[in-house]
Amino acid sequence: MRGLIGHIARRGLLQCEKGATAVEYGLILALIVLVLIGALTNVAERTINMWDNVEQKVTES
């Protein structure tokens, strides 16, 4: 077991931060996706309301 730990330490794998960086990028991407979903939901609601108003105006005439 000591040989394995020594080998890992020599190769610099204990200080490797690639996994942490990947997790950080994943969290940033998830946050961006959530913001996009929220923005698109807001735009969709406004668009639906706009077309509902158009429909009401057309049926009233």
Rank of each mutant, 00 (worst) to 15 (best):
T21F: 04
L13E: 11
L4R: 08
G19T: 01
I48S: 07
V35N: 04
G26P: 00
T59G: 03
I28C: 05
T21Q: 05
V54N: 01
R2P: 02
R2A: 09
G26W: 01
I5R: 05
H7V: 13
D52N: 12
E60K: 02
L34A: 12
L29P: 01
Q56W: 13
V54I: 13
C16Q: 10
I37M: 11
D52I: 13
I8A: 05
A44D: 04
L4A: 12
A9Q: 06
G12R: 00
I37L: 11
N49V: 07
L27Q: 06
M50L: 14
T59V: 15
R11L: 06
G38H: 03
E17F: 00
L4D: 06
V23K: 15
D52M: 09
L4T: 13
M1S: 14
E45A: 14
G26C: 00
T41P: 02
R46V: 12
A39V: 06
N53T: 12
Y25F: 15
I32K: 07
I28N: 11
G19K: 01
W51K: 12
A20C: 02
I5M: 06
G26D: 01
L4F: 09
W51I: 11
W51N: 13
N53W: 06
L40K: 10
A39M: 10
G6V: 02
